[in-house]
Amino acid sequence: MWLERGESRRRIKDEDIWIVRLMGDGTTDDSELIRQVSKQMGSNAILAGLTLAQFVEDYAAFLSEGTKSRVFEV
């Protein structure tokens, strides 16, 4: 699975694919994301937040501009 923006592409790490799918399924509200990730990982909100923060940092160049649906491509 890849992310694409303009001429840049980035492969999504395997361990992050489920987060992309979660977003792709329409979960875009940040609080809801934390809740979902927390549930999925069986962890508390702090660790879920850190997981999501890491995700955002890793793909920041693809997430910072424009809408998420336009950016995500498989």
Binding site: S31, G49, A53, V56, L63
Partner: peptide
Amino acid sequence: QIAKFMRV
């Protein structure tokens, strides 16, 4: 987004 996720 970072602010939201990292606040706590």
